[in-house]
């Protein structure tokens, strides 16, 4: 066998073997990886819309997915909004829940962020940031309160505390929430969600 034929033969067979091997591994792990992703979303939905037994994806566009959380009888408990926006360093992906009539934010969690550790990364911390988002009036856009932070009872019903030294990260969370809320309200008045019609009947 001459040299170039040998080169082709060796590379081809190594490539074929590797390809075959990888497709097997891919098939074996595919389901599990998809399951992990779904589990992460479901856990987040349960966290932001408490009492959810089953959830359903109602709407999807770039950087925004809306899920409906339902109780065991199939009644709509609230919406879970999966959204992302630009943070100080990189995209911040978060999920927040509202009640079914879109007047209150029930809870907020941060799913993915790369903010500065010890500063902007505090947006994932319940004590210093997330707890202020529990049970907020969202009939109007929310606003940030300048530091120093005050206790949740003293905040007005549509106000959340800013993290000291991380105004930009706090603001980008606020903007993402406000923008996706606005979008959600518009979609709802346009009657884009099949789920509600069934419940209304």
């Amino acid at each position: 066998m001459n040299l170039s034929a040998r080169m082709i033969a060796v590379l081809t067979s190594v490539g074929l073997l590797s390809g075959g091997f990888l497709s097997t591994v891919g098939l074996l792990t595919k389901e599990r990886i998809a399951l992990n992703k779904q589990k992460e979303i479901e856990e987040a939905i349960l966290a932001v819309v408490p009492g959810t037994e089953s959830s359903q994806k109602l709407y999807e566009e770039k950087d925004l997915s809306i899920y409906g959380g339902k109780d065991e009888d199939g009644n709509l408990l609230g919406f879970a909004i999966h959204a992302s926006g630009v943070g100080f360093q990189d995209k911040i992906t978060l999920m927040f829940g509202t009640n079914a009539s879109l007047t209150r934010i029930t809870n907020l969690t941060i799913l993915d962020q790369k903010e500065t550790p010890g500063l902007g990364a505090k947006i994932t911390d319940r004590e210093s940031f997330l707890k202020y988002w529990e049970n907020k009036d969202c009939s109007q856009p929310l606003s940030l309160r300048k530091p120093p932070a005050i206790s949740p009872e003293d905040l007005s019903s549509s106000e959340v505390n800013t993290i000291t030294g991380a105004t930009i990260s706090s603001e980008s969370v606020l903007n993402t929430v406000n923008l996706s809320l606005e979008r959600l309200k518009r979609l709802k008045t346009e009657g884009k969600f099949a789920i509600e019609e069934r419940n209304a009947n």
Partner: peptide
């Protein structure tokens, strides 16, 4: 002549396996 290419294919195969395994 093609040893580096062959090594890389072999290495990449095991890297992909490791990556999928961790993700799963």
């Amino acid at each position: 002549q093609v040893r580096i290419a062959t090594y890389i294919v072999i290495i990449a195969t095991f890297v992909t396996i490791a990556d999928r395994f961790l993700a799963a």
